[in-house]
Write a protein that binds this DNA or RNA. Structure first.
Lengths: 348, 348
DNA sequence: GGTTACATTTAGATCGTTCTAATCACAGCG
DNA sequence: CGCTGTGATTAGAACGATCTAAATGTAACC
């Protein structure tokens, strides 16, 4: 047993070539399974590869071939289960296609986003899947990534406008339809005084979700009082904090459509603290259907976005773009589905 | 405004050099902030870099310098919030150090783990942070990564033994102490008939956690019936399924120490389905303190492992190893802390 | 034998950086 | 005037792969 697990020096094509008396080029052909090489030499080379414990240097190959075998994935916050699931889906699908995922997270800060993007782009990813931070501007992002690397925007639009030469693809959720469905559901259950709670209006997804709510309310002939829109950061803690403002604004509300599940869970927490019982005397809906939604007390009525499937889809879209760099940019809108659970009780 | 955002050709050092009449070497020195270059030429070069929209090619630099600026992170399952938080911590700390994270996930399958590792290692990471899949063997992992890339094992031991030349670092949780604390807590509350539920005994973390439980039981003079150990996959659904076996094995149990939070949440679900009320007539403890633990009904008594901090720590350990390749391998055991919530009620 | 065809192999340039060892310009000094 | 020291710059070889174009060997055919 003399497998040469040389700890010190890196094994290259030259070592293999020397080791079995062929040229570097031949070894390279063997590695790539070319039909040009003779059966017999192929076997000899493959033995030698194993014997010396060769590991392929994809970076060198990519340099020469001017290709890339990685995709960068930039998300706001991995701690958010929606993005964690999304990332898992992206990584799964990229892995199956032989690509590797370069991870970056921005913590919802557009300045960190800029830094993360500039760093990632230096590693030469073939493309970038970006879920923009709140308030992220098109021109800043473009400056960070340059015009050469294709970008797939997920979940949110960028602020400002892109120059026409940057044709970026989009994968968006059907935000407006989602909150419309949720609002219609609450109206059907008998609610009339319904708030829209959480999120910041400078994020496009928030505006779209508000629009869906507004659309359903108008269609039902219900006027919206200004106090029925309360903003918050899209996190549990900030939503719990903002509950105070919601209840103070109008004590007669019977339901709220929330920006997302994190906000909805925070609202339920806040309601409890103010002596209200979500699912009993106050109806709540979320958005995303994260794993916690079905576990909360009461279980949360929400919109299922299937984040892992979205991740796979995002991966496939960016890979398709790599194959067709010139195809014109497209926008895919993924459907969402209303999942009715106990938090959307009828009014008392 | 003539910033040359050339969409077609990649800008290299040569382009910059030609663009301002200096040599490639000088531009390279400017990029790396060398004190050798003249103030005035530096300014000229920097202008040109901006003007042409140059982006650094780190892969080429790494090839020449035989260095790496990435670390691979291989985790069982990103959908599990414990690992998602861990990954977030790793990525944060690596990013701050100027490294990029190569992501891979194994879905608890050791064959996928092998494939993922072989693929990642070809991209030449400086090191690998690996949370092994259940039943993953030392020799298989070594075969996949080779002996050149340093590895940091997180959370679990590998099966089998490593050859002595592979000196791998470890970051482990204080599993045994954790379940000992949880068990002592239940005993102090008055429980005597306590099960250990979930996990598979071929994972080292599971064995360690069982050992902590056993230790506390023995110290209290309590004998453990064979029916008090029921295994399950470390997921919510499988734990819910296995609840049946636990209750059928001994109907007089009053409490269970669970392998982790996912299992504990599944058990609570299963208990409800069998007409028992966790936190009222059956006490449950978990392990990990994932975000859902405080939200479940009842809130879960568990062991806080601070996964994000562990992630940062893992990143720091592997970076330290890069700086000191020859230092001898070490094992760090991270402390855990008991968080008492309502699921660990006293017996009726 | 000479020509062609085919299968296999290979030398050498190349990708975009960095590094080593010069080289160059210029001032100061004896 | 030649020598040396210093600051600034650079030519050219690497890094580990791939690719082009050409070379080699062998067999077949006229």
């Amino acid at each position: 047993m003399e497998s040469q697990t040389s700890v010190d020096r890196k094994i290259t094509l030259n070592d293999i070539a020397a080791g079995c008396g062929v040229s570097r080029a031949t070894v390279s052909l063997v590695l790539r399974g070319s039909p040009l090489v003779n059966k017999h030499t192929r076997a000899r080379v493959e033995d030698e590869l194993r014997r010396q414990g060769y590991v392929y240097n994809r970076a060198a190959a990519n340099l020469r071939r001017r290709t890339s075998s990685s995709i960068a994935l930039v998300v706001n916050e991995l701690g958010n289960p929606f993005f964690a699931e999304f990332a898992a889906g992206v990584d799964e699908a990229l892995g199956e296609a032989g690509f590797v995922t370069l991870l970056g997270s921005t913590g919802e800060s557009s300045s960190r986003e800029h830094a993360v993007l500039s760093s990632l782009v230096e590693h030469g990813p073939g493309g970038i899947i970006l879920s923009p931070a709140e308030g992220s501007e098109a021109r800043d992002v473009l400056a960070a990534v340059g015009a050469r690397t294709p970008v797939l925007l997920f979940n949110r639009e960028l602020g400002g406008t892109l120059p026409e030469y940057a044709h970026w693809d989009r994968l968006m959720l059907d935000n407006q339809r989602g909150t419309r469905l949720a609002t219609e559901h609450l109206i059907a259950r008998g609610h009339r005084r319904i708030a829209f709670f959480g999120g910041h209006d400078d994020s496009s997804s928030s505006r779209e979700r508000y629009a869906g709510y507004e659309q359903a309310m108008q269609a039902a002939g219900l006027a919206i009082a200004p106090a029925w829109r309360v903003e918050s950061a899209p996190t549990r803690v900030d939503a719990a904090r903002a509950t105070q403002a919601l209840l103070a604004g109008d004590a007669t509300l019977t339901a709220a459509v929330c920006y997302n599940d994190a906000v909805a869970l925070g609202l339920m927490l806040g309601l409890n603290q103010h002596g209200r019982q979500p699912g009993r005397d106050f109806a709540v809906t979320g958005f995303d259907d994260i794993a916690e939604a079905s576990l909360s007390m009461p279980p949360l009525t929400t919109l299922s976005t299937a984040p892992r499937a979205r991740g796979r889809q995002a991966a496939e879209l960016i890979l398709a773009r790599l194959r067709q760099p010139q195809a014109k940019a497209g926008t895919v809108v993924a459907p969402v589905e209303l999942v009715v659970r106990e938090s959307s009780c009828p009014p008392l």
